[in-house]
């Protein structure tokens, strides 16, 4: 399949005062057309930073190294001007908190139409027709009246679908969804999931799904990467990772799901500014060995997937 995005040895660190916060450490993954790649992990593990780095949205005081190859061009090398032209047109981004992602002063229709007017030479009439067509495709029975509403008149779930419509109206090749279901209730999440499934089926775009919701990742993703403290600790086919979990952290996450008894992983993740020898996860690991506290494990191929754990490497 057509490879859309290739992230190679991406590291991101923020400098604040004397401290260097290493938010993302040596992360590599790739996504092909029609693929959904999920990045999961606890809050603060750096998954959103990856999304922002790929989209070129990080502030100026960040140090980024590595490569982000999008269809053969390195996004990190591109000028701000070229990035602006790519964003919204070829790369769609959906941020968390849907109700705030829409400008309170404009109607839904106006906001879905904006990217079309900004990025293409289409007339207002044609753009409006595109909006109506998109909303109809999304299953709204009366797109005209939806388009005339204001964001405060719709629920969070509806607004998130409108945000999705805004990001996908120009049929991007890559869609980055950063916590798309945060703050939504269950029925709304179901709507949003349905929406993503439709996009996957009809638009064939590659998608990075960033979430801490394992159920969402399991439902949607083809491949999954589990992140802990700025590193990928396990990455592979979604089904395989869930059925035959290798890394203790992933097992901990799955054990924390309601259906598995909500067993939390003991301890908290270490602050990103603190580096220590050995595995980043070893202080919380229930299966730690002497070597875990001394040598930082590498991400190695283990059967059908990548794992960063001494336990698996020794097998």
């Amino acid at each position: 399949m057509n490879r859309i995005l290739e992230v190679c040895k991406l590291s991101v660190s923020f400098i604040s005062g004397n401290e260097v916060v290493q938010a993302v450490n040596n992360v590599s993954f790739d996504i092909s057309q029609g693929d959904i790649f999920a990045l999961v992990g606890e809050t603060g593990c750096g998954k959103s930073v990856i999304a922002h780095a790929v989209a070129g949205l990080l502030p100026d005081n960040t140090v980024i190294s590595g490569e982000v190859n999008y269809k053969g061009q390195d996004l990190l090398e591109l000028s701000q001007q070229d990035l602006i032209a790519l964003r919204g047109q070829e790369i769609g981004i959906i941020l968390q908190n849907p109700s705030r992602a829409l400008n309170p002063l404009y109607t839904i229709g106006h906001q879905i139409r904006e990217p079309v007017l900004v990025h293409t030479m289409k007339t207002k009439d044609r753009a409006s027709r595109m909006v109506t067509a998109t909303l109809r495709k999304m299953g709204f029975f009366d797109p005209e009246s939806e388009a005339h509403r204001y964001p405060f008149e719709s629920s969070g779930g509806m607004n998130q679908r409108f945000v999705i419509a805004t990001s996908t109206i120009l049929s991007p090749d890559l869609l980055i969804a950063d916590e798309p279901t945060t703050g939504l209730d269950h029925s709304c999440i179901a709507d949003v999931i349905k929406e993503f499934e439709r996009i996957k089926k009809e638009e064939h775009c590659a998608m990075i799904l960033i979430t801490h919701d394992l159920t969402l990742a399991r439902t949607l993703a083809d491949r999954i990467g589990v992140m802990y403290s700025g590193e990928i600790v396990e990455m592979g086919e979604c089904k395989a990772v869930f059925s035959d979990t290798l890394h203790p952290y992933t097992r901990g996450l799955i054990g924390g799901l309601p259906e598995n008894g909500c067993t939390p992983i003991p301890g908290i993740s270490p602050p990103m500014s603190r580096r220590f020898p050995g595995c980043r996860f070893h202080p919380r690991c229930t299966e730690r060995m002497p070597i875990c506290g001394q040598v930082h494990p590498r991400l190695e191929v283990n059967g059908d997937r990548f794992v960063r754990c001494h336990l698996c490497h020794s097998h």
Partner: peptide, 23 residues
């Protein structure tokens, strides 16, 4: 959020200042 998402949608800076923030 809406300014962030305007940046995500690739709107030019002047457009964000005039159309999203101004009103």
């Amino acid at each position: 959020g809406f300014v962030q998402s305007a940046r995500c949608l690739g709107f030019p800076t002047w457009y964000i200042m005039a159309e999203e923030i101004g009103p």
